[in-house]
């Protein structure tokens, strides 16, 4: 397949299919995330990227034989490794016997949150999640370091005229979007705060929140969106998310407990756990939403700059 557009669309479909597979595997939280990331954000980013890099692949003159050999060796090793695996779905597998039973049986008493995934994610293994937030933050900073360009201030009048001319296009889309965006934002908030009880949480909420902003930016033009959302402001927001998460940990440190031990946050340990989870999920949501917006804005901004340059060159 030489057309990258089709390749990316297919990979988006693959993401969506694996998300539905995850649902049938009982991993609803993961499915939610995979649907928003694998089928949503990453497809979108790839599409923006190919508008800048061109959408066809050159016919390959590579020697695929070596690659094929490597793949076959790795694949057969993996198949060999599967032979002694516990059977699929078997309740006797070691992973269901050790470590996990405590999460399933005791998390209600220890953390007090019905969604076990949330309690493991945000309390038992909260440090992994802190690492995850930092990974996203790192990606945001990395994309900034690579793509952020010094923007030339353009005439406001030019933007306005540009907007007016665009206003006639996509009229229906814009009206529908204007109606939808508040609901999307509302849904993001619901996902954010409902993560304790159902699937959802800071990460998914952040992605949805960012999706609303990105939708706005796509339909109303980057410049309008930029005027609504300030770039450096949103970077600070990303930092605040990480810091919020970290400071919850530091508070437990200052109170003589271990890092990220929430039970100190309130007189009642369970209430403390609740508060801790709420705060760190909020931190996750902040960082994820702002980093997604940063990444998208910088990709799209780069593209606008390129187009401007081309226009100037042709003049």
């Amino acid at each position: 397949m030489k057309d990258l557009f089709a390749v990316i669309m297919l990979s988006g479909i693959y993401g969506l299919l694996s998300a539905s597979f995850f649902v049938s595997m009982d991993a609803v939280d993961v499915a939610f995330t995979e649907a928003s990331v694998g089928a949503g954000i990453s497809t979108l980013l790839m599409l923006v990227a190919i508008t800048m890099t061109g959408r066809t692949e050159n016919p390959s003159r590579h020697k695929p034989l070596l690659a094929l050999a490597v793949v076959i060796v790795t694949g057969s090793l993996l198949i060999y490794g599967t032979l002694d695996m516990p059977y699929f779905g078997s309740a006797q597998a070691p992973i269901h016997q050790h470590v996990a039973p405590r999460y399933i049986n005791d998390s209600m008493q220890e953390v007090g949150v019905p969604n076990i995934v949330t309690s493991v994610l945000a309390s038992y293994r909260a440090f992994d999640t802190f690492g995850e937030v930092v990974v996203i933050f790192t990606a945001g900073m990395g994309v900034l370091a690579l793509l952020s360009a010094v923007r030339r201030p353009r005439d406001v009048a030019e933007i306005d005229s540009f907007n007016k001319s665009m206003y006639e296009e996509h009229l229906i889309l814009r009206i529908v979007a204007k109606m939808l965006i508040p609901f999307i934002l509302l849904f993001a908030l619901y996902v954010q705060f409902h993560g304790d009880y159902g699937p959802g949480g800071g990460f998914q909420a952040g992605v949805i929140f960012a999706a609303a902003i990105i939708l706005y930016a796509m339909l109303f033009g980057m410049n309008t969106a930029r005027r609504v959302i300030n770039q450096s402001f949103i970077q600070l927001f990303a930092a605040i998310g990480v810091l919020l998460y970290g400071s919850v940990g530091v508070i437990s440190l200052l109170n003589g407990k271990n890092f990220l031990d929430y039970s100190i946050l309130s007189a009642d340990p369970i209430a403390g756990q609740h508060l801790g989870i709420l705060l760190i999920e909020l931190g996750v949501g902040f960082t994820v939403a702002s980093v997604m917006v940063i990444i998208f804005f910088n990709f799209a901004g780069r593209r606008n700059n390129q187009q401007n340059k081309e226009n100037n060159d042709s003049c």
Partner: peptide
Amino acid sequence: AHLPILQVIVPLMAAPLCLF
């Protein structure tokens, strides 16, 4: 007693603070 975790979170928390 908290030295092991401070070892990692001091640079980790310092990173976002740089933005300010």
